[in-house]
Amino acid sequence: MLYPWQGTTWQALRAQDARQHHALLITGEPGIGKLAFARHLAKSLLCESTSDAKPCEVCAACRWVEAGNHPDYRELTPVVEDEEADSESKAKKKPSAWITIDQVRELNDFVHLSAHRGGQRVTLVQPAEALNLAAANALLKTLEEPPPGAIFILISHQWRRLLPTIRSRCRQLPMPLPERAQALAWLEAQGLADAAAHLAEAGGAPLAAIERADASALALRRALLAELAEPRQLDPLALAERLDKQKLEVGKVTDWLARWVYDLARLGLADSVRYYPDDMSRLAPLASGLDPVRLMRYHDTVLAAKKLASHPLNARLVYEQLFFAYQQAVRPMPKG
Score class of each variant (00 low, 15 high):
residue 211 E to K: 12
residue 92 K to N: 13
residue 242 R to Q: 13
residue 77 T to H: 08
residue 72 D to T: 00
residue 134 A to H: 09
residue 268 G to Y: 07
residue 89 S to E: 14
residue 104 V to H: 00
residue 66 E to T: 14
residue 10 W to M: 09
residue 262 Y to I: 00
residue 141 K to A: 01
residue 238 A to H: 12
residue 172 Q to P: 01
residue 322 L to P: 07
residue 37 F to Y: 14
residue 74 R to E: 05
residue 57 E to F: 13
residue 234 L to I: 10
residue 48 E to S: 12
residue 110 F to M: 12
residue 13 L to F: 07
residue 144 E to S: 10
residue 174 P to M: 15
residue 186 W to Q: 11
residue 97 A to I: 09
residue 167 R to A: 15
residue 233 Q to E: 10
residue 104 V to T: 04
residue 76 L to F: 04
residue 205 A to I: 01
residue 92 K to R: 15
residue 321 Q to D: 14
residue 87 S to F: 15
residue 63 R to S: 12
residue 336 G to P: 07
residue 269 L to F: 10
residue 179 E to F: 02
residue 161 R to N: 13
residue 22 H to W: 05
residue 60 A to L: 14
residue 240 A to S: 14
residue 304 A to G: 11
residue 200 A to N: 03
residue 236 P to F: 05
residue 96 S to H: 12
residue 97 A to K: 15
residue 292 P to W: 13
residue 164 P to F: 12
residue 112 H to E: 10
residue 30 P to W: 05
residue 160 R to S: 10
residue 70 H to Y: 06
residue 96 S to C: 06
residue 167 R to C: 13
residue 33 G to L: 11
residue 147 P to H: 07
residue 277 P to D: 01
residue 275 Y to K: 15
residue 305 A to D: 06
residue 306 K to G: 01
residue 312 P to G: 14
residue 46 L to F: 07
residue 207 L to Y: 06
residue 152 F to A: 01
residue 252 K to I: 00
residue 224 L to N: 02
residue 161 R to C: 05
residue 294 R to E: 09
residue 169 R to F: 09
residue 110 F to H: 13
residue 332 P to I: 01
